[in-house]
């Protein structure tokens, strides 16, 4: 691990000022950053410690939920208001990592966790995400776990998140602060497609910090759920996952929100499925037909073509569960 200094700021402004120095990273839970630092994939010279900042509150009200960025994954998952009002979020968090890691990791940091692509995480290989322009051995290599949506000729690494997928169906909005002030960005606009710059993963500017996540309350949020399909029962990243939120009027779907994990280079919304559900009765045939549309534009490899089939089945199962 490369040597670094640890800066402990007294407030957000001094944190942002420190983070605008070169080769600087914020550290919150540290569960991904320290893994990457141990393997020399991240090589910061300075870490700005967010722990001293009072930014871990969970505020739930009739109009919505606001998570401060340092809220722990375990605390958000177990919060009674989240369990009741935003079940897809609680379920996605509980399906993430392990109990110990959820006690450490923060919701802000979770949005920034980096891909589990084995080539990215091994400095013995080329990787356009780690060393821009060095190549992508995954495209013709071991790519069973890689993305089928949003891929480019430069990168097919999967975004590994669960929580962000749930947030895609909840219209979450991120609150950011940087040297030039604050701004808000929708969760769907936060992660970038790899295109020809896979090393730039989000719209965050240098030194910019996530301070909070705002999630509106809605009938669909209350009727929501998360299904995660893994290679083992627990403590594993998704092969495929599906998040569903339905606004129902009796037996009719007024509107639907559907997103998927494990398949995209970023958390992936499925508007083709949503459109096929809007205004339709929640009958078996309707759900089946809609789920069958999932993955429009998918580009598969020989090893990960199964993901398109699995995606449609996972979406169907999640729809059936939430509609029931």
């Amino acid at each position: 691990m490369q040597a670094f200094t640890l800066t402990q700021p007294s407030n957000i402004q001094s944190a942002v000022a420190a983070a605008s120095e070169p080769q600087t990273k914020y550290i919150a839970g540290g569960t991904d950053l320290l893994q990457l630092a141990k393997d020399d994939i991240e090589t910061p010279r300075q870490l700005v410690d967010l722990e001293p900042l009072p930014m871990s509150g969970i505020h739930a009200g009739p109009n919505g939920l606001r998570l401060e960025a340092l809220a722990r994954m375990s605390d958000v998952a177990a919060h009674p208001a989240v369990v009741h009002g935003w079940p897809v979020l609680s379920q996605a968090l509980l399906a993430s990592a392990s109990p110990q890691i959820r006690n450490m990791a923060t919701v802000g940091g979770n949005l920034l966790q980096r891909t589990r692509c084995g080539y990215f995480r091994d400095t013995g290989f080329a990787c356009n995400k780690r060393v821009p322009g060095s190549g992508c051995p995954a495209i013709n290599g071991e790519n069973r776990m890689h993305a089928i949506l949003g891929v480019s000729d430069h990168c097919i690494a999967t975004n590994p998140g669960d929580m962000a997928v749930a947030m895609m169906v909840l219209d979450a909005e991120l609150e950011l602060i940087g040297r030039n002030g604050t701004r808000k960005v929708a969760i769907g606009d936060f992660h970038r497609l790899p295109a020809d710059t896979p090393h730039i993963e989000t719209i965050l500017r240098p030194g910019e910090l996530i301070t909070g996540i705002a999630i509106p309350a809605s009938a669909a949020a209350r009727r929501s759920g998360y299904l995660k399909v893994r290679d083992r029962a627990s403590f594993e990243f998704a092969v495929v996952s599906a998040a569903v939120a339905l606004d129902m009027d009796g037996g009719t779907i007024r509107s639907a929100r559907v997103a998927a994990g494990g398949v995209g280079t970023k958390p992936w919304r499925l508007p083709e499925v949503e459109a096929a559900l809007t205004g339709k009765p929640a009958r078996a045939a309707t759900l089946q037909e809609a789920a069958g549309r999932a993955g429009e534009g998918a580009k598969t490899t020989a090893m990960n073509a199964f993901k398109l089939v699995l995606l449609r089945r996972a979406v169907l199962r999640a729809l059936q569960t939430v509609a029931a």
Partner: peptide, 13 residues
């Protein structure tokens, strides 16, 4: 009072 993994915890924090 909470279980964590000590390998990914910096002692200096």
């Amino acid at each position: 009072g909470r279980r964590v993994i000590s390998c990914l915890t910096l002692a200096s924090r």
